[in-house]
């Protein structure tokens, strides 16, 4: 490639990379500002917005709700998703494309439709404006990720492993616990990470289906942003960025680990 073209390409790529990270790089320092205004760079550093966050009963409740709903939804999505992925791997069933379509449908349907439909359906059941309603909704949204990651982990392994286990005298339960589970565990955990991240990120369903008692961090941020932008919101945003970074690192490590395991199994 010509020198000018190369230069232009590199400049565009670098500028785009900066465009991607710059907004986050502005939010984090501002959350430590000692000022009440959006002064950048901050005139001084302080933890006052984190203190405000910690002392506000609303934000605390939002944090607790986020963790409860996220953990419960992740547990349901991981359990059901792992079993389903093992089922898909075990035998080719008739109607496989339709089964996949059904499992992936929560990823495809625009989330506003999910939010409105679940509100409409859950209200007469008493599930609207309840933790359980949101847990079920987030579990459905997270389950496809678990199925996909566990299935990807399993694709590296031969089904003959199961026959070998039973030939060695292992019953179905032992085979599941001692052979299958250790194999799929990295996939299950990284699927669970995706499912939790989905719940942590989810704003629209919470806005429509949740009541005042189901305030989560995204919902509380949405409400705050409709008002005036207080720096407490940026402290909450920084907490969420930190959480995302941790989840990102965990997911990368697990991906590397399961790639190593799969290549070891192929040898």
């Amino acid at each position: 490639m010509s020198a000018i073209g190369r230069l232009l390409w590199m400049v565009v790529a670098a500028a785009t990379a900066l465009f991607l990270v710059a907004p986050l790089l502005v939010v984090v320092p501002l959350s430590f500002s000692s000022s009440s205004f959006l002064e950048f760079p901050p005139p001084g550093l302080s933890l006052r917005w984190y203190e405000a966050l910690w002392q506000s009963p609303f934000w605390r409740q939002a944090g607790v709700n986020t963790l409860i709903i996220g953990a419960a939804a992740t547990a349901i999505a991981s359990a059901l998703g792992t079993l389903a992925a093992i089922g898909l791997w075990l035998a080719p069933l008739p109607g496989r494309p339709a089964i996949f379509g059904l499992i992936l449908s929560p990823m495809i349907v625009p989330v506003i439709i999910t939010a409105v439909a679940l509100t409409f359906a859950f209200s007469p059941l008493g599930l609207a404006a309840s933790h359980w309603g949101l847990i079920l909704a987030h579990a459905a949204l997270g389950a496809p990720f678990v199925v996909v990651t566990v299935l990807a982990t399993l694709s590296g392994f031969d089904r003959a492993l199961l026959r070998a286990a039973s030939a060695c005298g292992a019953g179905p339960i032992t085979t599941f616990r001692r052979v299958l589970l250790p194999l799929v565990l990295p996939g299950v955990v990284s699927g669970a990470v995706f499912a939790f991240a989905t719940s942590l990120d989810e704003t629209v369903v919470v806005l429509f289906l949740g009541g005042p008692e189901q305030r989560t961090l995204p919902r509380q941020m949405f409400a705050g942003l409709k008002d005036t932008i207080e720096l407490t919101i940026l402290a909450a945003a920084t907490v969420l960025i930190a959480a995302s970074t941790v989840l990102l690192v965990v997911a990368r490590l697990l991906a590397a680990r399961s790639a190593r395991l799969a290549s070891a199994a192929l040898r």
Binding site: A84, A91, L102, I103, S105, A117, F120, A121, V147
Partner: peptide, 23 residues
């Protein structure tokens, strides 16, 4: 395989697909 798939399919059908179809 079908028994392993059933719980998730049932869950998605009742708590996701049915509400959307009803709406």
């Amino acid at each position: 395989a079908a028994l392993l798939l059933a719980p998730l399919l049932l869950f998605i059908a009742t708590s996701f697909v049915a509400p959307i179809a009803a709406m």
